[in-house]
Amino acid sequence: MNSMKKRQRRATITALIFILPFFILFTIFTIYPVIQGVWVSLNKWNLMGRQKFIGLENYVKMFNDAKFWTMLKNTCFFTLVTSPLIVVVSLVFALLANRPVRYKKFLRIAYYVPGVLSVSVGSFIAQYTFAPYRGLVNGILTSLGLVTTATEPQWFQRPELAWAVVVIMTVWWTCGFPMLMYLSALQDISPELMEAASVDGANARQKLFRITLPLLKPTIYLVTMLQIIASFKVFGQIRLITGGGPGNSTKSLVMYIYEAAFDKNKMGYSAAMSYALFIIIAICVMIQMKLQKGDE
């Protein structure tokens, strides 16, 4: 008995020693900055000068800042549009790439490849594709005779079109990874189930809706949650493709936070807004997890 306890204790110590290096780094580089961030959000600070404690003033300012709400609205809009799109499109891709066809491998690679590009490369491709007068899309439309120089769509001048470009780029660029998750889940579905269903006379549609999709549910939940989090944090592609324009119509909350911190040197205010975003995401995730639990 005693020796077992001793052994257990040893195991714990060994485990601790293994965990310790990571834990120290995690504390220094993640936990401490998180706490420090709360402190910064209660101060007025321009990075260089002294921090001046102002209590909740930054948060009060945030509630009264019309721009904050505009950016939050933009971000919610982006999340509401792209998250379902990505969840569905990558599922369709996965189903397509999971069929026993000869070019299966090609499909998988083709769907996945955009995801390996960095956000800047992906954004530049989008920008060139939709550029007026010389871009691919307008070039094709013009050569088909659908538009002329005078009437061609100005993708970056109208808010709806600018959103369309950002959303298309995001879906194209992001779908690869969720597709892989779906694919691996699809491969976990036992072929015997499908055989049995076929023997019972189920058609392809019934098999999809009655067997495949219900079995994919946990993966769908996971993908949805990851997408919502990622969408709320959108920054790179919008900054690079539209710069938030026209006007402020496509500017995301994270862009606004970045500008407050690094263009305007308002570290406290930008920290306060970061925590607001953190709370919003945390609530979304909690709702999501509740729904999933209820479902199971």
């Binding site: 324009g245 402020n248 500008e259 263009d263």
Partner: peptide, 23 residues
């Protein structure tokens, strides 16, 4: 003190909205 990153960039955004028929 807040001209370069603040006032100027906010002015540009405000004007862009007008040039681009947003406002």
């Amino acid at each position: 003190s807040n001209y370069y990153g603040g006032m100027k960039s906010d002015l540009i955004t405000a004007l862009d909205g007008y040039w681009q028929n947003m406002d």
